[in-house]
Every structure is written in structure tokens, then in C-alpha cells.
């Protein structure tokens, strides 16, 4: 079974945990998913191995970035009819507050969905949804041009 078929079968079973199994990096940093209404929501419980500054302790900024990029990828995989696995084109993050030693949550919006490109905005927070710790925007390639 091709990966796209596998994902479509996972989606029809609503087995979102099986989706994480397809992304080893997401397992490495400890991503968990749940359904809120009809959307898939990613969360990341605090893990010792995600620390970037041991004294505070604060999460590594790269973990926050990786979590958010992955949240956008999962959101796309869940929301749209896939032809290929979306490929990251660019990822841009603004850090608003340090990531503390607690659970992180994210919310993703697809601002533009074309046949080739998707533009996603992701917001991440910890205790207070009104105090985001980071915002990110990213483009994913959904399908490529054929050579002329």
C-alpha cells in the first residue's frame, strides 16, 4: 500500500495515533494528537530530552519549531485530499515567550490552499491560549509542476 493510501485509510478509521507512527521525528520529540471537534490538534508534553536551556529549564527553540512544522503537516494530512506527502518549502518562526517545562499546544490554519502550494499559519501556547509562545508560517508543496 502506498503511503498516501495508508494515510487515507488511517483517516477513514479516525486512527490519528497511527499517523504519528508514520513520522519518526514526531515520536522522538513526543508529539501527541487528539481531535477537537473535526480538527486534529497536536500537543507536546514536557520531556527532559527537549530541553535547550537546563537552568530555567526552557525548551529548545528548535523543538518548538519542529513541533509547529509537524503540527502543520499533520493538519494538512488530515484536512485535505492528498496526492503526495506535503513537502516543506519554507518555515518561518517568531518566538514570543520562552517555552517552559510544561505541555505545548498548537492551532493551525490553512490560509491558502492551491493545487500545488498550501500556506499554513501555526500558533503555539502553553498554559494560556492568549499568551502564545511562538507563531509560525510555512509553505508546503502538494504537487510539482511537470517539466515543460
Amino acid at each position: 500500500m502506498s503511503l498516501v493510501n495508508k494515510i487515507n485509510s488511517i483517516k477513514s478509521r479516525h486512527d490519528y495515533e497511527a499517523l504519528i507512527e508514520l513520522i519518526p521525528y514526531a515520536k522522538t520529540i513526543g508529539v501527541e494528537t487528539s481531535m477537537v471537534g473535526e480538527s486534529i490538534v497536536s500537543s507536546l508534553r514536557f520531556m527532559e530530552s527537549n530541553i535547550g536551556n537546563p537552568a530555567i529549564p526552557a525548551l529548545h527553540g528548535g523543538v518548538v519549531a519542529g513541533f509547529m512544522e509537524n503540527a502543520a503537516l499533520l493538519h494538512l494530512m488530515w484536512e485535505i485530499e492528498l496526492v503526495n506527502i506535503p513537502k516543506i518549502v519554507d518555515f518561518s518562526i517568531d518566538y514570543l515567550r520562552p517555552g517552559q517545562a510544561s505541555t505545548m499546544y498548537s492551532k493551525c490554519d490553512i490560509n491558502r490552499l492551491g493545487s500545488r502550494i498550501a500556506l499554513c499559519n501555526v500558533t503555539t501556547w502553553q498554559e494560556d491560549i492568549n499568551k502564545p509562545i511562538a507563531q509560525a508560517r510555512c509553505h508546503f508543496l502538494l504537487s510539482e509542476n511537470k517539466p515543460i
Binding site: I23, P24, Y25, A26, G62, A65, L73, I85
Partner: peptide, 24 residues
């Protein structure tokens, strides 16, 4: 490393691991 793969069909590294290495 297998632990940082993002695309398990093509075995490409996840962009998040690249971002982390770049940030560091």
C-alpha cells in the same frame, strides 16, 4: 538517524530537526 526522519517513504530528515540544528 532513523529517529529524525520526517518522510518515512523517502527517508528524508524532518524539517524540524534541520531547524533545531540551524538554531543551535
Amino acid at each position: 538517524s532513523k529517529e529524525i526522519i520526517g518522510d518515512s517513504v523517502n527517508n528524508y530528515i524532518h524539517g524540524g530537526a534541520v531547524s533545531t540544528a540551524i538554531d543551535t
